[in-house]
């Protein structure tokens, strides 16, 4: 973890957003190829008949296309994924940094090409009964299957894929969060008249500080009350990210939406999403969060509509000397 973090901090510091996007490209190619490689080997070594037979014997509900929890989890994950894009500065900072025609094509292509990955990764997980593997936690499915089929080679492939995935997420978050802190806290509140050079230097310091905070958090060995695995982190945060989808959409396209209603919809969506996470199950947090925030948003807009003037936002046009693009140099 220390090695991955140090490498990520170094190239984010030296290359900024451009280095992060460039390495993300390489890491994504490695991840997709690695997952496809494991899937082809699973097909070759185990086969569909054996996988299907063992599932029918041991876990038949996993082959049920109308399994209620699975359908809820499907939509839950869709909302979680969309919520990730809408709420996170990882994607917003890139959208601002891209040329006008590049962003749309890049996001559309990335979304389409990522579509088969959950199917492929899910299939690898379905092979566990046929291989006689006992999976202790959900995060371990991929490594266990790869190690069972390929031995040491499989373990190395999984290590490379996991390394690439971790580095890809880490560097993106370092660049996006440092950009956010520089813009909203440093330039927004601490030094409103900071020069380009001062902002550039502040971004570097913030990247290092974020790296240290991440290292301290990753080094914590105690147990957290809610979060036990990476999968649980994703399920748990689903309530937070999915409740941001509709308020962001309305904030961008619906001039009658009021800010209080938008804020309340996020709070209500998150709260009920978390309640459903604990009372119903992990597979509904994002679903409930998105549904509740939509209802509150529409109701609040209907009860207290306003007429927003889009020209107010004219000052927020991305500047050519903004920290994002400066950091990308």
């Amino acid at each position: 973890m220390t090695v991955i973090l140090t490498v990520c901090v170094l190239y984010t510091l030296l290359g900024g957003l451009r280095a992060v996007i460039g390495t993300d490209f390489v890491q994504t190619v490695i991840i997709v190829l690695g997952v496809a490689f494991i899937a082809w080997l699973t097909i070759d070594k185990v086969g569909f008949e054996a996988i299907h037979f063992n599932l029918m014997e041991e876990r038949p509900e996993l082959l049920n296309l109308l399994f209620p929890a699975a359908i809820m989890f499907l939509f839950n994950n869709l909302f979680f994924g969309v919520g990730e894009i809408f709420h996170s500065n990882v994607w917003w900072s890139r959208a601002f940094a891209f040329g006008r025609s590049v962003g749309f094509r890049a996001y559309l292509l990335a979304g389409l090409l990522w579509l088969p990955i959950p199917i492929v990764a899910g299939f690898v997980a379905l092979a566990t009964p046929a291989l006689g593997i006992n999976v202790p936690v959900a995060d371990m499915v991929g490594p266990l299957v790869a190690a069972e089929i390929l031995g040491l080679t499989g373990a190395i492939v999984v290590f490379i894929v996991v390394f690439a995935a971790l580095a890809s997420s880490l560097d993106s978050l370092l660049a996006a969060t440092s950009d956010l802190v520089t813009r909203d806290i440093y330039r927004g509140h601490i030094r409103k008249r900071a020069s380009d050079h001062e902002q550039f230097r502040a971004t570097k310091v913030i990247v290092v500080l974020l790296g240290l905070v991440t290292w301290a958090a990753a080094s914590y060995r105690g147990e957290l009350p809610v979060i036990g695995s990476l999968a649980e982190v994703l399920y748990f945060t689903g309530a937070f990210v999915a409740s941001a989808i509709w308020p962001v959409v309305a904030g961008l396209y619906w001039r009658r939406t009021n800010p209080t209603g938008a804020g309340l919809s996020m709070v209500a969506g998150t709260t009920l999403g978390l309640i459903s996470y604990f009372t119903i199950g992990f597979y509904v947090a994002a679903l409930v969060g998105a549904a509740v925030s939509l209802v509150v948003l529409v109701l609040s807009t209907w009860l207290a509509p306003r007429d927003f003037d889009w020209r107010v936002l004219a000052e927020a046009e991305p500047r050519s000397d903004a920290p994002v693009t400066r950091g990308a140099q």
């Binding site: 299907h52 037979f53 029918m56 038949p60 579509l115 088969p116």
Partner: peptide, 19 residues
Amino acid sequence: MMISAEALGAVVVVATAIA
């Protein structure tokens, strides 16, 4: 509605080929 081995195989092969 259970998915058959053939249908599972077809979906997975197409997805893996695209990936």
